[in-house]
Amino acid sequence: TFEVERIVRKKIVHGNTSYLVKWKNYSSKDNTWETEDDIRTKYGDLVDDFEK
């Protein structure tokens, strides 16, 4: 199971928000862009903290 360590960046393309996710126990080269809906479902607190 993958676990988010932190959110690195945010991008908005054509009105759709995605977050660059750093995965726990993986290197930064393994970071992936994930949709806001996918990340918010399980890691809403991390998204809220990133947006502060």
Rank of each mutant, 00 (worst) to 15 (best):
24 K>H: 07
5 E>D: 07
41 T>N: 10
36 E>M: 06
43 Y>A: 11
12 I>P: 01
16 N>D: 08
16 N>V: 15
12 I>L: 07
1 T>W: 13
13 V>S: 09
42 K>L: 14
44 G>H: 09
49 D>S: 11
6 R>T: 09
42 K>C: 14
26 Y>P: 11
29 K>Q: 12
39 I>D: 01
44 G>A: 14
4 V>A: 13
17 T>D: 02
2 F>M: 15
27 S>W: 06
18 S>Y: 15
10 K>D: 01
46 L>D: 03
24 K>S: 05
17 T>P: 06
21 V>H: 01
32 T>I: 02
46 L>C: 05
44 G>N: 13
24 K>R: 10
3 E>Q: 08
33 W>C: 06
9 R>W: 09
29 K>D: 13
24 K>Q: 08
29 K>S: 12
14 H>T: 07
24 K>G: 05
2 F>R: 15
9 R>P: 00
20 L>E: 07
32 T>V: 03
19 Y>H: 01
24 K>I: 06
52 K>L: 12
8 V>K: 03
30 D>Q: 13
21 V>P: 03
46 L>T: 04
10 K>A: 05
21 V>T: 02
12 I>V: 13
32 T>A: 03
42 K>A: 12
30 D>I: 10
23 W>V: 02
44 G>D: 05
8 V>Y: 04
49 D>R: 10
16 N>I: 15
40 R>E: 03
31 N>R: 05
11 K>D: 04
8 V>N: 01
28 S>T: 08
4 V>L: 09
35 T>D: 11
40 R>H: 04
3 E>V: 09
37 D>Q: 13
15 G>I: 02
26 Y>F: 13
14 H>V: 08
35 T>M: 10
48 D>E: 12
14 H>K: 12
20 L>T: 01
40 R>Q: 04
36 E>A: 11
21 V>I: 11
5 E>P: 04
52 K>P: 04
6 R>N: 08
11 K>N: 04
26 Y>H: 15
32 T>W: 00
51 E>L: 07
32 T>R: 03
16 N>E: 14
42 K>H: 09
31 N>I: 08
45 D>H: 14
15 G>N: 05
2 F>E: 12
49 D>V: 10
44 G>E: 08
30 D>H: 15
51 E>M: 05
25 N>H: 11
37 D>C: 11
38 D>S: 13
18 S>I: 15
7 I>Q: 00
27 S>V: 07
52 K>I: 09
17 T>K: 07
22 K>H: 05
12 I>Y: 07
15 G>E: 04
13 V>K: 08
2 F>S: 13
49 D>I: 13
14 H>Y: 09
27 S>Y: 07
1 T>P: 13
31 N>H: 10
22 K>M: 08
35 T>V: 09
50 F>I: 02
12 I>G: 04
10 K>H: 03
14 H>C: 14
1 T>N: 13
18 S>F: 15
13 V>I: 11
1 T>V: 14
19 Y>E: 01
9 R>F: 07
36 E>R: 05
32 T>N: 02
50 F>T: 02
2 F>H: 15
22 K>Y: 04
43 Y>E: 03
29 K>V: 10
33 W>Q: 01
37 D>G: 08
51 E>N: 09
25 N>W: 08
50 F>H: 02
20 L>R: 03
23 W>Q: 00
1 T>F: 14
50 F>A: 02
38 D>N: 12
32 T>Y: 01
12 I>N: 06
34 E>W: 11
18 S>R: 10
16 N>Q: 15
20 L>K: 02
22 K>P: 00
23 W>D: 02
35 T>R: 12
28 S>N: 12
26 Y>G: 12
39 I>H: 00
29 K>R: 09
16 N>H: 12
32 T>Q: 02
17 T>S: 06
30 D>V: 09
50 F>R: 01
45 D>K: 13
18 S>A: 08
7 I>W: 00
19 Y>S: 01
29 K>W: 12
28 S>Y: 12
5 E>K: 00
8 V>G: 00
16 N>P: 00
44 G>S: 14
51 E>Q: 05
37 D>Y: 13
43 Y>R: 05
37 D>W: 12
38 D>G: 05
24 K>P: 04
44 G>Q: 13
17 T>W: 06
23 W>C: 03
1 T>L: 12
36 E>F: 07
5 E>C: 07
13 V>Y: 07
23 W>N: 01
21 V>L: 03
22 K>G: 03
31 N>S: 10
11 K>I: 09
13 V>H: 11
3 E>K: 03
1 T>R: 15
11 K>E: 06
32 T>G: 01
14 H>L: 11
38 D>I: 10
11 K>V: 07
11 K>G: 05
10 K>R: 07
47 V>C: 04
42 K>Y: 12
48 D>N: 09
45 D>R: 10
52 K>S: 11
43 Y>W: 14
6 R>V: 11
10 K>Q: 04
19 Y>P: 00
25 N>F: 09
34 E>Q: 09
39 I>P: 11
16 N>A: 12
4 V>G: 03
4 V>T: 01
33 W>E: 00
15 G>S: 05
2 F>D: 11
7 I>F: 01
17 T>C: 05
18 S>C: 15
43 Y>Q: 03
4 V>Q: 03
9 R>L: 10
23 W>S: 00
20 L>C: 15
46 L>P: 02
38 D>P: 03
47 V>Y: 06
27 S>C: 09
21 V>S: 00
8 V>C: 12
24 K>N: 05
51 E>W: 04
38 D>K: 12
24 K>C: 08
6 R>G: 07
5 E>R: 00
29 K>N: 11
19 Y>L: 01
17 T>M: 05
34 E>D: 01
11 K>P: 00
35 T>N: 11
26 Y>K: 15
8 V>H: 02
31 N>V: 09
45 D>N: 12
18 S>E: 11
41 T>C: 11
50 F>E: 01
52 K>F: 08
49 D>Q: 12
11 K>L: 08
24 K>D: 04
29 K>I: 09
20 L>I: 00
6 R>L: 09
9 R>G: 15
7 I>V: 06
32 T>D: 01
46 L>K: 07
39 I>C: 07
4 V>M: 07
27 S>Q: 13
33 W>I: 00
17 T>R: 04
27 S>G: 11
38 D>Q: 09
10 K>W: 03
48 D>P: 04
18 S>G: 03
52 K>Y: 07
3 E>I: 10
51 E>P: 03
21 V>Q: 01
27 S>P: 15
3 E>M: 06
1 T>K: 14
39 I>Y: 01
20 L>F: 08
27 S>T: 11
29 K>E: 13
36 E>D: 06
4 V>R: 00
25 N>V: 05
15 G>V: 01
25 N>C: 09
13 V>L: 10
31 N>Q: 08
7 I>N: 00
41 T>A: 14
30 D>E: 13
8 V>P: 03
20 L>S: 00
43 Y>N: 08
2 F>Q: 14
34 E>L: 15
9 R>M: 14
38 D>R: 11
25 N>L: 06
32 T>H: 02
5 E>Q: 04
30 D>W: 15
22 K>C: 07
33 W>Y: 01
19 Y>F: 08
32 T>S: 10
20 L>W: 08
5 E>H: 03
23 W>F: 04
26 Y>M: 15
15 G>L: 04
37 D>I: 10
11 K>A: 10
20 L>M: 06
21 V>N: 01
42 K>T: 09
51 E>R: 03
11 K>Y: 05
8 V>F: 04
39 I>R: 00
20 L>A: 00
